[in-house]
Design a protein around this nucleic acid. Structure first.
Lengths: 197, 197, 197, 197
DNA sequence: TTCTAAACGAGACGGTACGTCGAGTCTTGTG
DNA sequence: CACAAGACTCGACGTACCGTCTCGTTTAGAA
């Protein structure tokens, strides 16, 4: 049994309604200005329901983001190359960043809202830890001479909702992806650092 | 005359008292948990005074940060090399990042509080614009082939209070500075990107 | 069912706590100088609670007064003569004024605070309208030749907190009641006004 | 010398400007909602000037009212009958109430603002004391058997800005005066109260 | 199918922090 | 040098929103 108990039919329905309402509101009003009262009202459920399901504002936004990134996560773990295991580290990293950038470009407002809510717990979120571990592992394989841990943080720091929005213009819908990819490439291609005297 | 009117003596005194109180509270309690009521009480002034002087929570934190970085800003504009004008772009950038990292390491909690308060207006703050312009200008001089604008955002994205705190350990007080410097060096030393086919 | 929904237990408890705190503070400090912050603090609840329950400073004071006068109101509507229906108008009016004067004498400070808060909405308050309607109705029965409406306003205008306090001296605890009663008696006993030529 | 110092010309001009501005604002917006900042701005003077001249919000409104009632006051003290000394008490009272009602009808909004500002000091204001003393004295002459002091308070309690406004309708511009006069007449014509047993 | 206990739904409640407003004060500049 | 101007101070008021809690309702599973 994957669940201790079958999720009640109405509960599942409400769960979906809340997620849809939240994404609608985040899309309309920018990231911020989405209070849980409004989400609950828009979803047609009580506020208690939202909290029962998602624990907190942060949890709700996290759930939304994880819903968006679930496919990418599974492709990395169990999928085919170049995302999944088997491909060279460099190609896996490029493919992964491409996928994550795509998600970011499609959900910039949501990213902003999530950052706002997470505050300082951002670095302890399961998703963040997963992305970070994946990047650091690949970087370590490709460039053992670099500080893979910090570099992974640096790459993930680019996924700021507002930065995505400002980088992405109507004329260049994928400029953020290109910028991130180029930056990553530059880092991986950098010559070995001279030893600190 | 740089000011239309001399700031009143009592106003200046209160301004200082509020800033000192805020910095004291931010230092004690971590970044967050610093309400303006408490700042006002700690400073011994009414809450209205805080709002008149700083406009909002964001304004107060911004003022604190700008106070901390004023010296660096002036050194860049009017100071001697390697920070000020005259030195090669590469050296100016290294010196600047070193200075900014030092400020960040000394004020990680304040950084966190400011990010929390600024929300999504971060990229329009005068300070951010100044830092960004400076970095982008130097990068453009040193590496005209790179996307200086995005790269500047990427470097500034590293100055996240929580990342600073997590990078800096008691044993390595300047590890954040070293990491940032190395990353910047790697980027500037990267070979020219091959033309996209 | 008199109520759509049962008032929650904790809400009722807090409601009482707030009212008790307010009455305590009004009694100690005179009428004015009772800020809602202090009431909330004295009651041990958040300020938001006070506002949720009572809407505003005015609402809180009104609730206090209505609590004081609820018994009188019910006695008038459903009680026994001479207050309740059945007694001659003159006797009902005398009994009513006696009761209202008693309340006023016991709550002069509260009256003052309420007047201060109500400002100009005094004549539209449910309580005022009820008292006024009752008086006017009785006067109209007793003396159809008088302007019952204005006379009712005139009688109620006597219930000014400060006037009550100034009329009531330690030596004559019920002097206000006596004065009001005599004045009312004089009005009701006045000879018919000569027709205006 | 009646004044320690001759009032400077500009001071006198500003004094008038402030009074005119205040009356204009009170007339436009009802009684309340007239902040001293706005009065000062409307008068084209600094706020300090308003406070130096009138001491406080209360003082400003009081000055306005006294300006309005100065003529009546002088007529009572030094004028000709029936207002001034010499006429029978009954006629002097009637004439006085008529005059005061006229002022009230013309300045209902101002009355309201003044009550709001005076709060509980209403009974100690020079104007109030003067009116009260005059009424009480006349009542005492006419009806020594009544409680002249309380009756004077009762009559003055009718001069409530909001009551005046509600009594006065476009169709009956002087209805307030008539109502007050009739009420006073009824009181003075009331038969002697039977002795309290 | 009916009963019972647990989970759910709705939203009122509790509290903290923010920002506004206006009365009254005080410093600085000016005629 | 007294007055005018208005920036400044203070604290009360009211709002917004997060997270909790209660109470009535619905459902899942047992008898």
């Amino acid at each position: 049994m994957t669940e201790q108990r079958q999720e009640r039919a109405d509960a599942a329905r409400n769960r979906r309604a809340v997620l849809r309402a939240a994404e609608r509101l985040v899309a309309e009003h920018g990231g911020d200005h989405v209070s849980l009262d409004r989400v609950a009202a828009e979803a047609g459920v009580g506020k208690g329901t939202v909290f029962r399901r998602f624990g907190s504002r942060t949890g709700l936004l996290r759930a939304l983001l994880e819903e968006r990134s679930l496919a990418l996560r599974e492709a990395i773990t169990d999928g085919l190359p170049p995302l999944g295991p088997g491909a060279p580290a460099r190609e896996r990293l490029t493919a992964f960043l491409d996928g994550l950038c795509g998600i970011a470009e499609d959900n910039a407002a949501l990213l902003t809202a999530h950052e706002q809510a997470c505050a300082d717990a951002k670095y302890t979120e399961p998703s963040y830890l997963f992305w970070h571990g994946h990047i650091a592992s690949l970087v370590a394989q490709e460039r053992p001479d670099l500080d893979a841990d910090f570099l992974a943080h640096a790459l993930l720091a680019l996924f700021d909702g507002e930065l995505v929005r400002r980088t992405t213009s109507p004329g260049e819908p994928r400029r953020f992806t290109r910028s991130v990819t180029e930056l990553a490439a530059a880092l991986l291609d950098a010559p070995p650092a001279p030893p600190v005297p």
